[in-house]
Design a protein around this nucleic acid. Structure first.
Lengths: 183, 183
DNA sequence: AATCATATAATAATGGTTCTAAATAATACT
DNA sequence: AGTATTATTTAGAACCATTATTATATGATT
């Protein structure tokens, strides 16, 4: 979702779905969908609002909230309520995956694993729930950088160390994305 | 965690940990820990505050917030930020499990599965994160009751139906906690 | 009992999100 | 085209869970 054609495709996918559900293709919605698609990580309403306002100075925050809400109900956007974060994050990746959150730098990393989908299916089977496949599971911990940064202080309890240091980064399903902290 | 002796043990476990960390065993903290242990589900600050105030009319909400915060930092309490819920929930169950939330009635059900722990370990291994084992993963969906209640309306998209109807059902009252044990 | 650090209560402040009503834009209809 | 109708947006107020503040109270220590 980095290069221009991919961004354009994503924007069109969102807008087409909006129109098919009876919503109108307004200039504000186009701008909001574009800002969403261009954002590399897990944007907040504030992130998108700030970006859209550059081209659209009169836009209201409520419009961003409303558009996010609509996209969410269409299943195109997942809401991520992350413990201790001031703002709600959103995720355009609606495939089953894990969002891993660093407790210290608040970065969010995507991890795609086949087992997530089967875990959800088994959970649905055992409980009788209809479960959202799109849900991004959230796990909390300390990222490698913050582990090093805190290496001299006392080791926190109830954490699970990784078996090995990762030999390579940003490969496989790992989508490492540094987000500016919105405060 | 239902009968009196189990509740008492839980309360003592919390208070002992508080004291070992240098905190005092005050009457307010005893009452708060008792209310936590007595609650069958995933209480909010308001739940505990309301309960404690019956025996302790002068208690302040801030005391509940502060005690929860302390217990959380000791790893004895997990914070559950559930999307679209007005209040933050808390969970005394610090074993790895899944919290399944109904989008319609807002009930929360616990599901313990062996695969959760291995999923977390694999995620840690792949990303280099130190991950909290205690984390309760959150999944969203529709509980069996609400599925039936909505059977006549349009089927929502992006849901995953369970393979079979659950063999045993539990009453889905407010704050009911279903314990689906892994065997 | 005096001292000192910690804990609590009461209340104010914060701020993300939601709500409201009026203005505006887009579509449908003549 | 012009008008009616409906959806959308805007601006700002309101909401309310949570956090911060501050004075008072409590408990441990000597």
């Amino acid at each position: 979702m980095r290069d221009n054609s991919a961004i354009h495709d994503t924007v069109e996918r969102l807008l087409t779905a909006l129109e098919e559900s009876g919503k109108r293709r307004t200039a504000q919605r186009v701008a909001i969908c574009r800002a969403l698609a261009e954002h590399p990580g897990h944007p907040t309403v504030g992130d998108v609002f700030t970006r859209v306002r550059r081209d659209f100075p009169m836009i209201s925050q409520a419009t961003v909230y409303n558009t996010f809400d609509t996209l969410q109900h269409l299943g195109l956007l997942t809401q991520l309520d992350i413990a201790d974060h001031d703002h709600t994050h959103y995720d355009l990746d609606i495939t089953p995956h894990i969002n891993i959150v660093c407790r210290y730098c608040e970065n969010i990393v995507d991890l795609h694993m086949d087992t997530v989908s089967s875990l959800i299916q088994e959970a649905a089977s055992r409980t009788g729930f209809e479960l959202q496949e799109q849900a991004g599971l959230i796990l909390y911990g300390a990222c490698p950088n913050c582990q090093r940064r805190r290496a001299t202080s006392t080791e926190g309890a109830n954490t699970l160390s990784s078996a090995r240091a990762p030999s390579r980064r940003n490969t496989m399903g790992i989508n490492s994305q540094t987000e500016a902290r919105n405060r």
